[in-house]
Amino acid sequence: MLQIDQLTKTFGAKTAVKAATFTVEKPAMIGIIGRSGAGKSTLLRMLNCLTEVSAGTIMFDGVDVTALRGAAKRNWQSQCAMIFQQFNLVPRMDVVSNVLHGILNRRSTLATMFNLYPDEDIHKAIAILDRLGIAEHAPKRAEALSGGQQQRVAIARALMQDPKIILADEPIASLDPMNAQVVMQSLRQIHEEDGRMVIANLHTLDTARRYCDRVIGMRDGKIVFDGTPDQLTTGVARDIYGADETFSEAATSTEIETLNAEVVKLAEVAESV
């Protein structure tokens, strides 16, 4: 389905992504991990055509995405929905209208100006919100919701596009562990029930192992690991993050039990000093 070949992005003298190459033959849930600045976000932005490619190709179902322009490019972006860390909602607008923004590119300018949508689209938006467990918040302003709820609204907006691929750029980075798990479970459910490809940039190893079928590790713009969650050992993680033997997975965990255990451990160390 998706073929990435020698994908490269340079910003002046700096190379953010270096000859990234991988193939996804069927819908899967893929996690991309690596330290800040590894090139994860730039890679996703190239896939969505938000960032221009310096070299290499992106092929999807036989179509060269890197060659798309104008309406064809906008059509691809509707098929390749993007979810951001900071939600990118309109705070003072109600939740259902934020979800309906997922189909703005299909609406006329006049309809968009007056926020006019067919009943069919409104019902679809509410059904998606219901699927994500937040339909009761449909009439509320987006700013009235918690961070986890707002991220689910962003997911609903992406689903409103009926995309073939969902790209999630650090979707849980600003969430507490409980909301992080709810959001990741929602993305996993969408992959399993809809058969959609989901590619998510993640900053925690336990999340990648728990929710993803495949994990890609990036370091300094290069793909240095591509395998199953079981193959993502602590040693491999150290190599991906460029860390030494003091590297602790618990420090990046989103699991509540792990976090509690780490707090207890730190408290015990403090008492012994």
Rank of each mutant, 00 (worst) to 15 (best):
F225R: 01
I134E: 03
L104K: 11
T23M: 07
E193G: 12
A55E: 13
L43D: 11
R219M: 13
P91M: 09
V63L: 09
P177D: 12
I122G: 03
A142K: 02
R210E: 15
E143P: 05
L266M: 08
I33V: 12
G221L: 06
Q149G: 11
N115Y: 07
D226V: 01
I165G: 01
S41E: 05
K222D: 12
V65A: 08
K222Q: 15
S78H: 13
S248E: 15
S36K: 06
R196P: 01
E245M: 10
G62Y: 06
V182F: 13
R45L: 14
G31W: 00
T57R: 15
V236F: 08
V96T: 02
H123C: 05
I223A: 15
D239C: 04
L44E: 07
I4L: 10
T10D: 08
M113K: 10
M197C: 15
M29R: 00
C212T: 03
E120V: 11
E245L: 08
D239G: 05
A125E: 01
F87K: 07
E25I: 00
G70P: 01
E143S: 14
T57L: 13
R106G: 05
M82D: 06
G221P: 03
P229R: 02
Q150A: 04
L175K: 07
A55L: 06
D230Q: 10
T207L: 12
V264C: 10
V198E: 02
L68K: 15
E193Q: 15
I240N: 11
L259W: 03
N48Q: 09
G62D: 09
R74K: 14
T246G: 01
T10E: 06
G31Y: 00
A67E: 10
R92L: 09
E262R: 10
D226K: 04
V263P: 02
P229I: 00
F84Q: 10
V236S: 02
T8I: 02
L205C: 04
H123F: 03
E257D: 10
T207C: 05
R141T: 10
S54M: 08
G102M: 00
T21W: 10
A135R: 14
A158H: 03
A200P: 01
R188D: 00
D206A: 05
D162R: 04
V24T: 12
E249C: 13
A19P: 07
N115G: 11
T254P: 00
N179G: 08
E192W: 01
P139R: 04
A173P: 14
T66V: 08
A208L: 03
M46K: 12
V273Q: 14
G221C: 05
V182T: 11
G148C: 08
E25P: 00
Q150I: 04
A243V: 03
R107A: 14
Q86R: 15
M184I: 01
A135H: 08
A81N: 07
E268R: 06
I33C: 09
V269F: 06
Q85I: 04
N115T: 09
F11W: 15
V198L: 02
K124Q: 06
V65L: 05
D213Q: 13
H101A: 05
A142G: 00
G221F: 03
D220V: 09
M46F: 02
I256S: 03
A180Y: 10
E255Y: 11
G195L: 08
Q151H: 06
T234L: 09
E249I: 14
D94V: 10
V224T: 07
M184K: 04
I134K: 05
G195T: 05
A267D: 14
S41C: 03
V224K: 00
S108K: 09
